[in-house]
Design a protein around this nucleic acid. Sequence first.
DNA 1: ATTCCACCGGAAGGGGCGGGCC
DNA 2: GGCCCGCCCCTTCCGGTGGAAT
Length: 387
Amino acid sequence: MLNPSFLDDEKLPEAERVSVLKEVFHRNIRLKQIQRLAGLLAPVVGGTLPANLLIYGASGTGKSVTCLHFLETLKTMCSTKDVPLRYFYVDLTTPRTCFGAFNELAIALDGSTRRYRKGIALEHMQEKIIAALGAIEGFCCILIDEADNITTDSDIFLTFLAKTLPKRVPVRIFYVFLTNRIEWEKNLDPRILSVLKKQDMIFEPYDAMDLIEILRLRVEKALDVKKVEETAIRKIAAYASRETGDARKAVELLAKAVKVAEETTGLLSEAEVDSAEHSLEVDKTEELIASLAVQQRLALQACYTGLRHQKGKLSTGAAYEWYRRVCEDEGAQALTQRRFSDMVSFMDLYGLLNARVASKGRYGKTREISSSLPQKLVKSMLVSQDT
DNA sequence: ATTCCACCGGAAGGGGCGGGCC
DNA sequence: GGCCCGCCCCTTCCGGTGGAAT
């Protein structure tokens, strides 16, 4: 491995990240999307305010990077025509409250890195934002990533964007909202929608060909190309595109496969990819188990201890008995069966076990709980929790 | 057809706590 | 920093349910 950081975006310095992205776009990936963006936002070059834009697309389809890249080009185009354009990026990737959203916006606008103290009145934040925008002229694009991620009072935030802000500042603003939830628009206040006067656009997931290009680029940057088989890349792309077409996942899988290859043959072929796929799945499950709440972990532990003693299926009642015993051992307060029942359905939902309701006629109706995890994982879980 | 088992899963209400707001 | 309200977790209560048994 020559330069492993190219397999992990988090570790890549900003400048490198940008140059990698440039190359992605040079290879004509996302070309269609860029052309559509251009079609919709082009008016600004001629000095007209374009409509606001709402972009849908699953995560990992390159919405953010494509938009950032495009806005950068748009900016240079504008400057050759003497149209002043600035753009700001508001990242709501992690859920924010209404206040938090204002905070992010303020940070993006005034360039400060520190977050504003919480406990400041909302109006104060709004004034800050207005002041920052009041200082600039011409056009301004605000790119709001994961706009659906505002947990509370998103109406207030959006109303401010749509109504208050344009009135209070001289700069002419247009927005680009990114979201991966198609139904977001539906739970918005229709009045806000009408003010926004927006246009929609959809980002298709990457197809296998796109992913192959992206992976090749990473391989060229990060690895000794001779040690990577073309078929392996294709396989990764196939895995990723079959699932969601998420480029991040594809790169993640590549990284894992490289790790596997390093530990074994030193050569990256299809076999390593398969093995990486598998171990990635195990990692995810372990992570999921580790992140469970205490009670849920106890319940899970109880189910699998029960299943060990009684092969096959377990009824809710029996599982609950095990659970009470486990709780006693651990010195924890056992919850009610009602709650336990909910936890079982929860864990079924997350694939940590199978639980389907079945009627046993005269002998009642219950969930049949059975294992859905590989034996190895179950063992390591029970061992690690016995300690 | 009826009974009845062993739970399901909705509703309502209590209580603790953490985040929003000043 | 401190207060307060909303949310989440939990319990209690209870009507509902599919199909073996009778």
